[in-house]
Amino acid sequence: MQRDEQFPSPAVQARGLVKIWGTERTVDGVDLTVPAGSIYGVLGPNGAGKTTTIRMLATLLRPDGGTAEIYGHDVVSEAHVVRQLIGLTGQYASVDDRLTGRENLVIFGRLLGLGSSEAKKRADELLESFDLTEAAARSVKKFSGGMRRRLDLAASLIAQPPLIFLDEPTTGLDPRTRAQMWDTIRHLVETGSTVLLTTQYLDEADALADRVAVIDHGRVVAEGTVDALKASIGITSLNITLRQASDHRAAERIVYDTLGLAAVETRESQRVVAPLADAERATDVLVALRRAGIAIAELTVQKPTLDEVFLTITGQVPTAEQAPAVEEVGSR
């Protein structure tokens, strides 16, 4: 029996975590502090090092450098203690395909030290609360993606661990299942768990996380509350939907000439999104577009979404370099 001397310590405290695969520094000096009782989001594009970081925190991978502590317990030297305090739901559901949902939960429960009848009782409780009772006797192979994720999450909660890692909990789920998953995660925190989740979806971090660390190329490039991150960009954005996608280039050119800022890359060819220092200048853009004969279907001026924050911070769109141009244009 071991008492925590440094109580209370943060749920997660990582300093300078490094993981090297071959010559690539997948995780390159990550610092993270996750306060107990919160939802903490680790945000980043594919291959940013999110999963590798979480695997090191969950004792699945040994760090090549730096230290990490879970409630004050080192993930390397006290791995067995750490494993008693965490639950992990991986990106690919870590459940057994060839067993039924119930068998999976019972076996994990028995491995966690529950007695036979206790494990069965706990399995049934979890199946019930995750809406899986009907599928309990079916082989996991026949589960839908959403059901597998729910079962996976249920498996992480058998021992009621105080800290739960969720690695991309909604990747590949349809919107309805995704919303259900969000509710489940929120409910977890209400019942007192600390959640560390990774995601590539900015709206997910926005909707769930109290604090966010943005990771890119194995480094934390920004950290703070979601609101603070949004405020750090400090500008609203102009959203134009064009009637014709063929006008896209011309419209981008006009936006650049008028505002002195490049439009943000969007996936839709009919949309042009540009950072706007001053909402009044939207008028100038409209006038210029009218003069060029470009028809507009819709126009909005909005506060920055996390998408824009993210793109600005990770520098995937060169808006940061062109920021000084704002004054230039403004003084004209």
């Binding site: 008492r3 925590d4 109580f7 209370p8 749920a11 107990a36 009782g37 409630y71 305090l85 009621q160 661990p161 105080p162 800290l163 019942t191 007192g192 768990s193 600390t194």
Partner: peptide, 9 residues
């Protein structure tokens, strides 16, 4: 620190 965490620790 939450109830669960206190309980666990």
């Amino acid at each position: 620190i939450s109830r669960l965490e206190r309980q666990a620790l």
